[in-house]
Design a protein around this nucleic acid. Sequence first.
DNA 1: GTCTATATGGCGATAGAC
DNA 2: GTCTATCGCCATATAGAC
Lengths: 193, 193
Amino acid sequence: MSKTQKQQHLDKAEQILAGALPEFLQHGYARTSMDRIASAAGVSKQTLYTHFGDKDGLFNAILKQMAREKFQLVCSKPLEGEPEQVLRDLAQRLLKEVNDPDHLAFVRLIVAESVNHPESPKLFLIHVVQPALKILTEYLEQHQKLKDCEAIARIFVGALIHHIITQEILHGKEIIPIEEERIVDNLIKLIVH
Amino acid sequence: MSKTQKQQHLDKAEQILAGALPEFLQHGYARTSMDRIASAAGVSKQTLYTHFGDKDGLFNAILKQMAREKFQLVCSKPLEGEPEQVLRDLAQRLLKEVNDPDHLAFVRLIVAESVNHPESPKLFLIHVVQPALKILTEYLEQHQKLKDCEAIARIFVGALIHHIITQEILHGKEIIPIEEERIVDNLIKLIVH
DNA sequence: GTCTATATGGCGATAGAC
DNA sequence: GTCTATCGCCATATAGAC
């Protein structure tokens, strides 16, 4: 295969992924048809199959792309400063990044497909959750040396993520609303004091 | 309609619901066919349509049944005793009840269908989550009068539910495992002290 | 490799007898 | 109301020309 052909091949594959990603995010796996993806990507249906084998192959490629590129949480650099301010900044960033239409759709998708595509949540945990837990745990260990910082980091991240899932994905805003600030404030108070 | 006919009607409807429930739980909405439900319930496909109109009607009936009867969380009687023991008991009960194959499948289902069937998560919040939050909030208000007990209750329940979702539904056991006891112990310490 | 056209099967929903 | 048999559609996947 010449360099030019390979380049064209990659371009086509990326063109397909770019077209398929919003379709899977918006409609989920079962409700997204290969016809629809072909149309959205601007290629013929057969081209999808030559590049990705079948629908599952295309979906798995999409999941890897999402976990590795699109939905990286927070930053990877270590946290610095006073605990109260550091935790507040981290909470704000995390809430802002997760409370985004595409990210919420991503979470819905990996939960919905956690049985039939078990690799998808694993990619999510490895590339998105684990790094966030790691930098928070390492920071806490420098400031709360006698406590179980790994468990506390889980509680911190878990309470925030659950808040978003409940309010946004489960439509909790309409049933059991609560101000985000109260969750953040009390969570920080519990941990710092 | 005579009493006998009505009784037969109800029996048939319940027979259908009983057959359809495990199918929807195990395979989700899109992957469950009306043929499969008819077979599982031991009735003809036409009978499904006579009683519930269409697939959506049957699914909504299933959701109501699950939220109202099958997945009631914890108990509704007020909590009593010392905070540390009360919180520990509540955590254990909540974890045990949520970490059940059917309950996990129920959570997966309402998240997966939260867009196309937005009533399903609302039923879940009203019948399952809200009562649990209520009794915990009322208990905390008797023992921690100066604190924002509603927010703390959300943090408590949220951290536990998120732990189960991450470990069980997202297969976190294999990627980022942690002992449940550490989550419970540290959560209680944060709140009580 | 990429296209147009097609094969094949399963789906939700219905018709008509009883 | 309940059954058997069937319709019409859309899904995934493939065939064959270029």
